[in-house]
């Protein structure tokens, strides 16, 4: 049976990790490759890198970084952030990313999803959705959470899956950074609405948060950043805890 996945997430700017990783034993905690190797050693199931670099020139360095990461770890990883077109997706896949996530540009041009899926296959195209609670449900935001779209998150998730996206990376803007746990209502609603894997993101602060995410929703994976970066828990500790609580986990 398929195990639930635990995925550390790293924000990258100009080829460096944003908000340094604090756990001990790293020579250079700002180097994404060093950090990736550390999480690889902790048996993270996957890694996610979100590039928040703005300028075009500097984005070129991202592919070089992805190549270095792929040369150093034998763990699948997703790269996203500012992915604009088919060429961006191709470059990142060719550099060694297992999957590429698309967010703003998929909302603006949904055909990007279907084109990418046709070219590279569903399994490597991730639809990233940033969602925020509104009176009628959840609304999709783009441009790094700055721009509301008026689009319903559940409808967008279904549409994205219909266009062939192979996975949804679902971030709750309300819970992100709170450490109060994942948005279980949102995660449950989206993971029931689609038949593709859903990665829950935003809010992990305690061990129980991971348990609740898997026990109370149909999420396939849980993504977290600070809880791992600041060494509060290692990936291994989270996974052992979940296994003890009866969640299907690879140790």
């Amino acid at each position: 049976m398929l195990a639930k996945r635990i995925i550390p997430c790293l924000d990258i700017k100009d080829g460096r990790v944003v908000k340094g990783v604090k756990f001990v034993g790293l020579k250079d905690a700002g180097d994404p490759v060093e950090v990736a190797k550390a999480y690889d050693a902790q048996k993270a199931d996957e890694l996610t890198f979100l590039d928040i670099t703005a300028s075009f020139e500097k984005r070129k360095t991202l592919c070089g970084l992805v190549e270095r990461i792929a040369s150093n770890i034998f763990t699948p990883f997703t790269v996203g952030g500012g992915v604009a077109d088919i060429d961006d997706i191709r470059d990142l896949l060719n550099a060694g990313a297992e999957k590429v996530s698309v967010n703003t540009q998929a909302v603006k041009f949904p055909q990007l999803l279907s084109d990418a899926v046709k070219k590279f296959g569903s399994q490597c195209i991730v639809l990233a959705i940033d969602a925020k609670k509104c009176s009628l449900g959840w609304e999709v935001y783009i441009n790094g959470g700055r721009t509301p779209t008026g689009i319903d998150a559940l409808e967008w998730a279904k549409k994205g899956a219909g266009l062939g996206a192979g996975e949804i990376l679902l971030t709750s803007m309300d819970f992100d950074g709170t450490k109060d746990g994942y948005d279980l209502d949102l995660t449950d609603a989206v993971s029931k609405a689609v038949n593709i894997p859903v990665v829950a993101s935003g809010g992990a602060g305690k061990l129980e948060d991971f348990y609740n995410c898997f026990a109370k929703t149909k999420a396939d994976a849980a993504l977290a950043a600070s809880i791992f970066h600041y060494g509060e828990y290692s990936v291994g500790e989270v996974k052992e805890y979940l296994r003890e609580k009866g969640i299907l986990i690879r140790l």
Binding site: M1, L2, E46, E167
Partner: peptide, 14 residues
Amino acid sequence: PKGDFKVPHMGWNQ
């Protein structure tokens, strides 16, 4: 086949 199990089959399995 479509069913209760998600497709793509993605992740760690035995």
